[in-house]
Every structure is written in structure tokens, then in C-alpha cells.
Design a protein around this nucleic acid. Structure first.
Lengths: 343, 343
DNA sequence: TTGTAGGCGTTATCAC
DNA sequence: GTGATAACGCCTACAA
């Protein structure tokens, strides 16, 4: 295939039409100051000559990139895929592009991503923090330049960064209460790094529900891991080794919950009658495992949309923002087959 | 937080050090032509003044972006997440950035993405095609400019585009054979749009296996849908309405397979004894459902790595490529509990 | 080893 | 409605 390495510029179009580059520039953006017939001629010529706008020249000149950056722990989860879809929708409608990067749950990569996006001069940043992120120094350069930074889900409190979350405390409380109401007396909780808001809040909800129902909490009954499928299997092994097993387990994500359940079933433990489970996220897997897993519906798409909208809203408004936390509604999804004593 | 809206440029550094911008430019890239002490001074001053390179000016001047674009149907699958991880690894090691876009399985969005990436002048493009993509006109502009385009998984044959795939025909054949060897006599196949190579090849493998084993194929036993969880449920309904049901089902992805299985189980059909299943992709869900689902291990990470490597390799080499198809090895994963008559 | 000068393609400003 | 000009920040001949 032949390759044209020479790019068509607005000058070429101008020359072809015997008008000025300025007019071409305006015409290409449908500027109403230009006569309609001229605009049409410009558009047509541009198309037929194979013109494509040079975004770099434009960005250099305008000092705006029309690009939003997103840093997320992993794109490989139902929740995150939903969230990104929500972000994309709003961002694209507003005429922006989106650059997605993964931290793979590592602070180091998160820092590198932040750096890259900073140098790419994104107009705004959306971030959900990695597992081991314990400070946000790497986001300060953005704030210093007045580039808005919005946190969602895995957030960090900073006076200039709005956050979009659900009430993880309440969700954890309700999930636990759901188990308690079924008569569970010995609850166990499997969750992630407690330095992350989402896991800490859920754990606090868990603990306070126990307290409210006068149920004793044994420190051994808190398992902290990375919530992967493998971690679920490991947790199951620990559980089945316990002399006195729990009769109810609240897991902070469905993925880990399902593999844990499954492993216990292999070992002839009856779910839910021996041990009842509740998960988190409403991942598709929660529907297809046996028994189906009750879970907490996490409004990923809405979180994404909202985060993006808050961001778009800040662009252009140059004033400092006061702390803004938006809490979205979650929902407890009870699946019949996960109830103790279901028929 | 205070905001510095003025960017530091190489001119500012030059002025501060009383040297020329040229020297600064060279010094910043560690050009050995510059005295080591000068280089060090430049670096230090740059850091202390908070300089960041303006990539747009640089790209405008150099006509290279150091960015690779990727267009995929959806990031929400185990396979695609693995693939992207593989791509990222190679791309980043080679010093490039990656822009990921989703077509959401729609040609229209794929075209828009292609357009955006084209205008962003990516140095190369990796693509896996949407469900309803039936031509690749939207990729021709890249080829015309000499920007390499590599297809992986969902590919399109074009003399200038290398493709990275597995042998879907063989995989389909083996999967089907696996069912036949268990004694299945009435096989059904659930798959996606047959205009996509992956689904057509698997179907052909399916059909030829039947032929080889002398098993009759009923046209009613081909269900074509979008392979979503919901489509699996719909398919299950169709199956359970059949007067003579199949005794073996080969589904072209695990997601759809698992929800289909599950729905049939709800209707008191015994899996695998009444109907045996085999899926595709080795999605994590295949391990946790009951019974565990036999499947085809799809080497996503390797596909991603390889696609990226082929791409990187073409950058800089300006010559036309002859058609290059790389076929990676897959593997049949048999899970005991999915075997008919397992104890 | 360092500096000068010019241009990459676009858009903002001012002029007509 | 349209045009001339300058500037965005960087890189690279070419010169010294």
C-alpha cells in the first residue's frame, strides 16, 4: 500500500481555494462568522484532500488537551468495567477523550501513570486508588496546576478533591445484619487492606452490627487478603481448619466469596445451612454460582457518570473547591437460595 | 491550594542559567555533546523550577507521538483484561504509552475510536474487531499513512495487517470431540456472529468433528446470539422447550455457558448427565460454577504481548509487510465434574 | 561544547 | 466575512 507521508494542512486547503488559512481554520470548526457557502467549500475540500487536524499544533496553541485521564486499580472486574462505561459516556458527550491506565494495584505504577498523564497535560483526572496507596503526593502536581482531581470508590480525603462513594459503612452493616437475622451467631469477615476506605468502612459496619445484636467478635474471624479467587480458596482452607467454624461469612467482594464458598462445598460443608455467605458488588458471578450469592448492588455505572460529571463541571471553573463528598445509594440484593433453611 | 498557571519552558531554564535554550534542550535529554557539569546544572534547575516538557510542542516538531492505540470490543472480560495486561507490559517497556478505547461491540463506535486515534496520530494500532464490523475501511487511513495496524483475536484479513490468533478451528474441533467421546449424540452449539473469524472457525471445527464421528447435525441446534449472560438464559429456555433435547452443548464463551447451564439446572435438568457442557476462554467463572465447566484455555496475556511485539517491530521499518499470521497454542482444560458419569 | 535562526500547524488578535 | 501576523514550546541544521 502506498504511503503518503506528507500531511495536508490548512495552508494547502487555503491555497487550493484561494482563501486565507485563518478562514479555513474557522470554516473547519463551523464558525458562523464564515459564510455558509464558504464553510461548505472548505469542508468538502478538506475531505477530498484527506486533511486531518493536527491536534498537537492545536493543543500547543490552545493550551488545552480535551483529554481526561483515569487511573484505576484494574479494569478486570464487573464493577470497574461498569464505572468506566459510565465515565466514557459522560466524557465523550462533553467532547473529551479518555485515557485509561491501570495501576495493577501497585503504588509504584500508579505514580508512573500519574506522571505520564501529567506530562500529557490531561485537563482533569479521575482516580480510584491502588491497594497499597497510602499518600497522594503524586497527585499534588495536578492540583498545583489547577487540574481537577476526582476520587471515586477507593478514595483519599483531600480538601481539593471531590470524592464519589457509596456508604460502605452502612452497606457493611446491612450485609452483616442480613446474616444475623438469619440466625448466624459466629460471623467471619473476609476483606482487603483496611487502610482503604472501602474495606475499613465495611468492616466497621460489620463490627457495629455485631455489637448491636450483642454478638461477640473473635479477632481470628477477620481474614485480610487481596480478595482474589485464589485468596478465596486460601480463606476456605483456613476456615475449614477451624475447630469451631463460623456459621456466616461476609466477604468484601463476590469474586473471592464465590471461590471461597466453592472450596468449602468441595469439603462437604453445606452452604448456606452450615455457613451462610454474603458478598459485595453484584458481580455476574454471584448469579451463576450455586447457591446464588446474596450481595450488595454497587452502582458502578452511576458512580462513573457522576464522577465524570463532577469533573467536567470543574473544568473552566477556576475557583478552589471546598470538600465535596457524594454518596450514592447501594442496595442489598437477597437471593433466595442463599438463605439458611430455604426450601 | 495555590495554582501556578504559568508553565516553565526551556527558555526560562536557559535564562536562569545564562545559557541558550538549545543547550537546555540537549541537556534535558542527556545529550553527551553537552558537558557533564552543564547537564547536571540543567537537570537540577529544571527540577527545582518545576519544569515539565511540553509533549505537544515536541510532538508537533518531531512528528512522533510515542503512543500506541488499542481498540477492543469490551474491556469487561477476563480474556481481554489479560490481553491488555500483556500489551501494556511490552508497550511500556518499549517506552510507549497506550490509549485504550472500547467499541462496545458497535461498528459505529469503533469507527469513532479509529478516528480519534487517527487524529491523535498514534504511532501504531492494535485492534480486535467489534461484533458487527464487516469491513475495515476505517483502518485504511492508518495504512495509507504507514501507521502499522495489527489485529488480534477478532481479525480481518488484509495484506498489510498482521494477525495474532489461536487455531479456533482446531479448538472447536477438540471441544466438540471431547463431548463426542463422552458419548454425546445430539450436540448443540451456541455461538456469536458467524461473520467473525473466531466464531466461524469454532463452528467449522464443531461441524467437522460431528462429521468425523458420523453424528448428524440438526440446523436447529445452532443458536447464534451475543454470548452474554442473558443470552445464555434465553438459550436455556429454547433448549428446555425442545421436544428432543441435546445431550451436549458447546458454547463459544464461558460466561454464556455458565448462565445457560445454570438456568437449565433450575429447570431440573441434570448437568452433565442429561446435558454435558463445554465452554471457551477459561474465564474464572468456569472454575466456581457447579459443576465446574470444561473449557478452552485462551492465552490472552501471550496474545497481547505478541501483538504488541509485532507492532513495535514494525515501527520504524518503513517497508510494506507481507501477510503474517501468528497462531498461538491453546489447550483443552477438562474439569472432572463436567464429565458425564463422573462419580 | 555551545549558540542562532527558523519552522512544525494551529488559533487569537487586530485590522479591514 | 475575511485576512495578516504573531505566538504557543520544542527541535535541529548550521555556524561558531
Amino acid at each position: 500500500m502506498a504511503k503518503d507521508h506528507k500531511e495536508i494542512t490548512i495552508y494547502d486547503i487555503a491555497k487550493a481555494l484561494n482563501i486565507s488559512p485563518t478562514t479555513v481554520s474557522r470554516g473547519l470548526k463551523d464558525n458562523p462568522a464564515i459564510k455558509l457557502s464558504t464553510r461548505k467549500k472548505i469542508m468538502d475540500t478538506a475531505r477530498s484532500m484527506g486533511y486531518r487536524s493536527n491536534t498537537f499544533a492545536s493543543r500547543l496553541r490552545m493550551n488545552r488537551t480535551n483529554t481526561i485521564g483515569a487511573i484505576v486499580p484494574r479494569i478486570n472486574s464487573h464493577f470497574m468495567a461498569e464505572t468506566i462505561a459510565g465515565i466514557e459516556k459522560v466524557i465523550n458527550n462533553a467532547g473529551y477523550n479518555l485515557i485509561i491506565t491501570q495501576s495493577h494495584e501497585m503504588l509504584e505504577k500508579e505514580i508512573k501513570s500519574a506522571h505520564t498523564l501529567f506530562n500529557n497535560r490531561v485537563d482533569g483526572l479521575l482516580a480510584s486508588l491502588a491497594y497499597d496507596t497510602n499518600n497522594i503526593d503524586h497527585f499534588l502536581p495536578f492540583l498545583k496546576k489547577g487540574v481537577p482531581v476526582i476520587f471515586f470508590d477507593r478514595v483519599f480525603n483531600h480538601p481539593n478533591c471531590p470524592t464519589i462513594v457509596i456508604d460502605n459503612y452502612k452497606a457493611g452493616f446491612e450485609a452483616t445484619e442480613h446474616l444475623l437475622k438469619q440466625g448466624c451467631k459466629r460471623l467471619l469477615h473476609i476483606t482487603g487492606n483496611l487502610s482503604k476506605n472501602v474495606y475499613l468502612d465495611r468492616f466497621n459496619g460489620f463490627r457495629n452490627a455485631l455489637e448491636k445484636y450483642g454478638v461477640f467478635f473473635d479477632d481470628d474471624h477477620l481474614i485480610i487478603n487481596n480478595l482474589t479467587q485464589n485468596d478465596g480458596i486460601e480463606a476456605a482452607k483456613r476456615i475449614s481448619d477451624m475447630p469451631i467454624k463460623p456459621d456466616g461469612v461476609f466477604v468484601a467482594n463476590d469474586n473471592c466469596a464465590s471461590s471461597c464458598m466453592n472450596e468449602l462445598i468441595q469439603q462437604n460443608i453445606k452452604i448456606p445451612n452450615d455457613i451462610a455467605f454474603i458478598g459485595f458488588n453484584n458481580d455476574p458471578v454471584s448469579k451463576v454460582i450455586t447457591p446464588a450469592l446474596s450481595t450488595v448492588q454497587y452502582p458502578g455505572f452511576e458512580i462513573g457518570q457522576l464522577a465524570a460529571r463532577v469533573l467536567i463541571n470543574q473544568l473552566g471553573h477556576d475557583h478552589d473547591m471546598t470538600l465535596q463528598t457524594i454518596v450514592l445509594k447501594h442496595e442489598l440484593l437477597v437471593r433466595k437460595s442463599s438463605l439458611k433453611m430455604h426450601t
